[in-house]
Design a protein around this nucleic acid. Structure first.
Lengths: 352, 352
DNA sequence: GTGAAAGCGCTAACAT
DNA sequence: ATGTTAGCGCTTTCAC
């Protein structure tokens, strides 16, 4: 049972000092492992143990100016990509002795700006933020932030903030080229919303890879939609009229939807149509057949963002004055959904 | 650009007081919306705005004894079940003006106890914890916790703590009965580790439903394994020798593994074998065919846990002295993976 | 209505 | 080696 101190609540260094018959300064020193005489140490430690003393982190923060808390703000924890980041950041934070505050912004700009501004309340020592769009207001808030910030995402040049970005242009190209190399020639593209940075990048990678492979850009093979399995299924169903032999999707949820639509249409994967997604989330391995997917390094981005932030927090003057930007390279993870169809021959020869 | 105050850092009420030519007490009153003369209010508000003042939450917490932070401790954010809980808790916390601290315990008992004990550091006003096993040490730590705690999980009677539990006995029975009613007679069970509370409950529900349906318990149809797609696939592959016509799995990951093993063995789902999982996570809809799954109400459990906690924090004296326990009812979500096989006839008549 | 001052629990400079 | 004391930034009596 926890013994109560004088504050009507928990024991403080004062309770310990009284009980041990020493000053509060000695208590503080002993508790912080600074020098003290052997018997003083013993008295204090015994008293602390008996009282079930736990140092008040708030008081310590007020004094020290640091909370040992980090904040991660992302659009939606429901998305596996952000889960991967949370996990990586949490791990890094824990290892460095920091707690992690989570903030869901629902991709609302005002909310993101609020998080940035609230750094002024000194609740956390630093922030990793993952905005989906970057407005001028963001850049402004980033510049005047009251604590170190690392952005996961692509910032305009000269933004003056540490950032970690994925290379989705290359990532998308990787997938398209792979589909080409495994014999696909009519490669459809189910993209997410067009007005986001990642949306544009993926479109760019798709076009570039097509050109490189000598394939023409066919408007009828491209569609934009919201993220989500349903959306992916709907979009793919519409695409079928254009007779694709592969469907490349801007994320795994869309790809799962595509797979569903193809199954429903009686088309075999990868026999008739290959499917590839992006993010390489847990979902990719869940599908049947398991999905080929481009790993954009969510975990790695989270890890690096945390590293950058912690590094700056460790550095005495706040670290380097020039902001650093790192790019995480994409990685194609090939699974059964894009196996070459050559061995089995054309679809009409084996389908009932 | 943020103007700097005297602390070498951010502006404080002192900076504002000086600039506005009033006392710090007046500043505090104005900022907290207490009574003040019109021109005082104006002077203070102008000064605050000009300085870009943001109140220091740490100082406020030290004074007020509340941090407006909640902690959620769960085994692993990688599991969709906990993601659902985080999401629900985060939403409730945000709505009530609380921030959310996330803590991954990796299901390590020492870590869970550490979280409980660390409530003494006053970093958060309350805790929702989701332990996978409950030891005596847990009960002890729960009883002496320095702040309100709500447990998501099943506690022994008289534990003296608020809790929210799932009813996995009924949930498992729901699935088994459904399989029976759709014509299955050899219902296999891929369970998680045997030494956890949920593991035992699910086994109990499985046995009870079998008995109720008049089916015998066949040892060869039951297997325990770790959670995970791979484990599920391996376990199911081993089960095949016992010729099941349905595989019920203790969670969706296992069920996806089962589906993979069945596909690999050339068995049709649900034509030859039906598959059902538990949790009704995002994964259930990702599979092909989409999986029937028992929703154990992760979101609802998170929501209710947060409610219980917030209620206690709102109550003046810490709320009701008698702990409350609520149970969230399971719900069977039927999808294609358990469609009755009657219409299509026995497997040997249509399989090549 | 407003200001002076106490104090939340802690650390650290200074004095002994 | 140990005690005294001054704050960290804020809220809140208590006088005026």
């Amino acid at each position: 049972m926890t013994v109560r101190g004088p504050t009507g609540g928990r024991p403080t260094i004062v309770s310990i000092a009284e009980r041990a018959g020493v000053s509060i300064a000695s208590v503080s020193r002993v508790l912080n492992g600074l020098g003290a005489r052997r018997d003083t140490v013993e008295k204090v430690e015994r008293a602390a143990a008996e009282l079930g003393y736990v140092p008040n982190a708030v008081a310590r923060s007020l004094k020290g100016g640091r909370t040992r808390q980090l904040t991660f703000a992302m659009p939606d924890i429901g998305n596996p990509v952000y889960v991967a980041m949370v996990r990586a950041i949490q791990t890094a934070a824990k290892a460095a002795g920091y707690r992690l505050l989570l903030h869901s912004t629902d991709a609302v700009v005002a909310d993101e700006l609020g998080v940035l501004r609230s750094l002024g309340d000194r609740t956390s020592d630093g922030l990793v933020i993952c905005p989906i769009r970057i407005t001028d207001a963001h850049l402004d808030a980033l510049r005047t932030a009251a604590a170190p910030v690392v952005v996961i995402g692509t910032l305009p040049h000269g933004a003056g903030v540490d950032s970690v970005r994925a290379d989705s242009v290359t990532g998308a190209a990787l997938a398209v080229r792979h589909l080409y190399e495994t014999g696909r020639r009519r490669i459809a593209f189910v993209n997410g919303p067009a007005d986001t940075v990642p949306g544009r990048s993926r479109a760019e990678g798709y076009r570039a890879a097509l050109a490189e492979c000598g394939l023409g850009y066919d408007q009828r093979l491209v569609v934009h939609t919201e993220f989500g399995i349903e959306s992916g299924a709907g979009a793919t169903a519409r695409l079928l009229a254009a007779r694709p032999d592969a469907v490349f999707c801007a994320n795994d949820q869309l790809a799962l939807g595509a797979a569903r639509a193809l199954h429903a249409a009686g088309l075999a994967i990868p026999g008739d149509v290959a499917v590839a997604g992006m993010d390489d989330s847990a979902l990719a391995q869940a599908g049947w057949p398991p999905l080929t997917s481009v790993d954009l390094g969510s975990t790695e981005r989270g890890r690096r963002a945390a590293e950058l932030l912690l590094e700056r927090l460790r550095a005495p003057g706040g670290g380097p004055t020039t902001p650093r930007t790192t790019t995480v390279a994409p990685r194609l993870v090939v699974r059964a959904s894009t196996a070459p169809r050559i061995p089995t021959g054309p679809a009409h020869e084996r389908n009932p």
